[in-house]
């Protein structure tokens, strides 16, 4: 599942929007990296620098089927990654933490 990425007029960008591409000044220096979340004040400072458009990520809400398939894919990858980690308490603890972190912890 892929998010939508669109160019948006800077006055239409709301606080909390996420940049899809880094914002650079005329010398190529990165002002904000890709993935940065915009606040009202950072947006205002970009307006002052003369920017008129930003490339923003629009997260697509997955369907239930996509969500289930995604969780199954994550679970399968974790099982594969940990195939030689052993069954001692430490290895199992790390696997449980990774499941929780990736959102596939079933309790």
């Amino acid at each position: 599942m892929r998010d939508d990425i669109r160019r948006v007029a800077i006055e239409d960008v709301v606080a909390g929007a996420r940049l899809a591409e880094p914002v650079c000044d005329v010398n190529g220096n990165v002002l904000l990296p890709a993935g940065a979340e915009l606040s009202d004040s950072t947006r205002a400072s970009l307006v002052r620098r003369g920017l008129t458009e930003l490339t923003i990520v629009f997260e697509r809400v997955p369907s239930e089927a996509e969500r289930v398939a995604d969780l199954a894919r994550v679970e399968a990858r974790l099982t594969y990654l940990f195939r030689s980690a052993g069954d001692n308490a430490a290895g199992q603890h790390l696997l449980r933490l990774m499941r929780r972190y990736r959102g596939v912890d079933h309790g």
Binding site: L81, S84, A85, H93, L94
Partner: peptide
Amino acid sequence: HALDLSGDENEMVSPITEVCWQ
């Protein structure tokens, strides 16, 4: 390895010891 950072399809988490974790 567990965070799958390198980009290696065959990534593998090495065994860790209890002593280390503790």
